[in-house]
């Protein structure tokens, strides 16, 4: 159910790693659990992010939660369209709802799609 070819963090974020760059976002499970997203506090360009640590905060109708970075590195690009339309994440968390592009120096303990699906199944039991 989760797309192949990208890596998943157990804190429900994903990274599409291409060479030294990784596009990062939250998973479909995360957006579903959060409900309608009303705001995302985007990291600044050039900010350092660390795998397993919060890189931004996301607010939904239900909760305010940290977004846990799946990778370590420097923020090279932010999806500034989310400033005005954070709700774009809900229908398209792996596409238009991407959050940042990070130049990576390391990554967390990441899962492939099948392992993440299995992890979600386990969690729900």
């Amino acid at each position: 159910m989760n797309p192949e070819g990208i890596k998943y963090h157990k804190e429900h974020t994903w990274a599409r790693i291409e060479g030294s760059m990784a596009t990062v976002g939250i998973t479909d499970f995360a957006q579903e659990a959060l409900g309608d997203i009303v705001y995302i506090e985007l990291p600044e360009l050039g900010a350092s992010v660390t795998a397993g640590e919060s890189m931004s905060d996301i607010e939904s109708a239900k909760a305010t939660s940290p977004v846990i970075s799946p990778v370590t590195g420097t923020v090279k690009e932010v999806n500034s369209a989310l400033e005005d339309e954070p709700e774009m994440i809900n229908p398209d968390p792996y596409g238009k709802g991407w959050i940042v592009v990070v130049e990576i120096t390391g990554q967390g303990d990441l899962l492939d799609a099948a392992a993440y699906d299995a992890f979600l199944k386990e969690e729900s039991q």
């Binding site: 607010e59 109708a61 305010t64």
Partner: peptide
């Protein structure tokens, strides 16, 4: 306790 956990906050559109 968060405003967004209150039904009234949602009803009036003030969840922050």
């Amino acid at each position: 306790f968060q405003y967004r956990a209150l039904g009234k906050a949602h009803a009036i559109g003030e969840i922050v």
